[in-house]
Simulated scan of single mutants.
Amino acid sequence: MAQPAVLMLEDGRAFRGEAYGAPGTAFGEVVFNTSMTGYQEVLTDPSYAGQIVTMTYPLIGNYGVNAQDEESAHPQVAGFVMHEAPPVYSNWRAAESLDDYLRRSGVVAITGIDTRALTRHIRSLGSMRGAIARAGADPDALLEQIRAQPRMEGLELACGVSTDERYVVPAAGDARFRVLAYDFGVKSHSLQLLAQKGCEVTVLPAETPTDEILAAGADGLFISNGPGDPEAVGHALTAIRELAGQGTPVFGICLGHQLIARAFGADTYKLKYGHRGGNHPVRRLSDGAVEITAQNHGFAVRGDESGIPGAPELRVTHLNLNDGTVEGLEHRERPVFSVQYHPEAAPGPHDSRYLFDRFVDEMARRPAAGERDA
C-alpha cells in the first residue's frame, strides 16, 4: 500500500502525494523538466546533481527502464517528482520498472502531486530549495532543514560527479583524431558521438592539472556539461585559454560553454528557473534557422545579440527564442566554439548534432604536428 509523502519548498508551500522509489528524505534545488520522454536519461544526467527534478509531462515510467539509456553509471538526481506513475510498464527493451530502479539506486521520489501547480509556482518565484519526505515528518523541523541547505549559487558540484581516473573511449573504426574530454559530468552519449566520428577520446578528471593537458598534445579539447555554478570551476580556464592560443580546436557544451565564456572574460549569472527539457527553440544567427534543442542548465552567459560584455574576442552565434539568452558562442580568430544546450540530444531532438561534425572539421583543418612544429 502506498505511503503518503510530501514535497516541501523553502517558502513553506507543501505538495502532498505518495511515496515512490527509495525510502528516506531527499534535499535539493527543486526544478522542472518539460521533456515528454527520456526520464531515464534525465535521472542519469550528472548535470542534475543536487537537484530534485519535477517532470511536467504527467505520465512517467510507462516504458520502464533499461541499461542502454543511461547517461552515467547510476542516477544523479537528488530526488524525483511525478504526477502519475503507471502501475505497469511496456517496452521491448525494458528490464525493470521505474519504481524498482529508483529503489535499487536509492533515489527518493514522490508521485500523485499537482506538477502543473508546482511548475507554475517555480516559474513565478524561481527555483528554490526543497525536500521530499514522508508525510509524518514534522513540518517546522523539515522547513528548518531545507533552509539550512546550500544554495546553488557558488556551489562546486562538478568534481563530485567527474571520473576519478582518466579512461579512454576508443574510436569506432580507425582513429582519426585524439581528443581530450574534460569531464565535469559528461554524458555518455557525447563520448559515443565523438567515437563514431573517428575520435579516440581520453576522458580526464575535472581537477586534471593544466600542464598535463597541455603536454598531451591532443588534436582537440571537448569540455563537457556538468552541475553547479560555473564561477566555482575556475581551475579549467587557464587550460582553455592556453590550448586555444595554440590553435587547438575547443568545443564546449552546457557548463563547458559557460567555462569557455568565462575563460575569455565573460560573466555568468543564475537564471530564475533555468531551461530544462527537449523542446527549447534556439535561433542560429548565421542563417536564421531555428533548432529545437535539449537543455539542462540553471546558469547563463551574460550578453545578447550585440555581444558579450568583457569578452570582445567572442561573438554570439545562437540565441534562445523564449527569453533571448545567449545559447552559442565562437571565438573570432581561434577554432573555439560552444553551445549552452545539449547537441548530443539523448533521447532527442537531433537538430544540433551537426556541431560534432563542426568539431571534427576544425580538427581536420588543423595542421599536422610536424607542420605546426616547422
Rank of each mutant, 00 (worst) to 15 (best):
V336D: 01
P309Q: 05
D357I: 04
C159E: 13
P139M: 10
R147S: 08
V250C: 11
N320Y: 00
Y48T: 08
G298T: 05
F251I: 07
G303P: 02
P249S: 04
P309T: 03
P230A: 09
Y101I: 08
A261L: 07
A26N: 01
T111K: 01
A311W: 08
D229W: 07
V42K: 00
H189G: 10
T208A: 03
S188V: 13
V77L: 00
A95C: 13
E10T: 10
L329F: 05
E156I: 06
S124L: 14
P349S: 09
V30N: 08
L243K: 01
E330M: 05
A109L: 02
I260S: 03
H350L: 15
R334H: 09
N62V: 13
V290G: 06
G310H: 08
S338F: 04
F337K: 00
S90Q: 15
V30E: 00
A175S: 14
R93D: 12
K197T: 07
Q295L: 06
D211N: 13
R120A: 14
A94R: 03
P249A: 04
Q3K: 13
M55F: 10
D100H: 12
E156C: 06
G198Y: 06
A85T: 13
A172C: 15
Q196S: 15
I122Y: 01
G328I: 09
L193R: 14
G130M: 00
L193Q: 13
I110W: 00
T54P: 12
A26C: 02
L194V: 11
Q40A: 06
G106R: 04
A117Q: 12
F264T: 03
L180W: 03
A133R: 02
D323Y: 09
G348W: 08
G217P: 10
Y341G: 00
D373S: 14
A289C: 13
S124M: 14
H189F: 12
L143W: 09
A131G: 04
V31W: 04
D174V: 15
V88D: 15
P230D: 10
E362H: 13
R315L: 14
E18I: 05
V30L: 03
L157M: 06
F15N: 05
L214V: 15
V336E: 01
H318R: 03
H297I: 09
L259H: 06
P46E: 08
G28R: 01
R262H: 09
N91C: 14
S90Y: 14
L194S: 08
E212A: 13
E70F: 13
G217C: 04
E212L: 12
M1C: 14
I308D: 02
G288W: 05
G278R: 02
S35Y: 05
T325H: 06
S72M: 01
L221K: 00
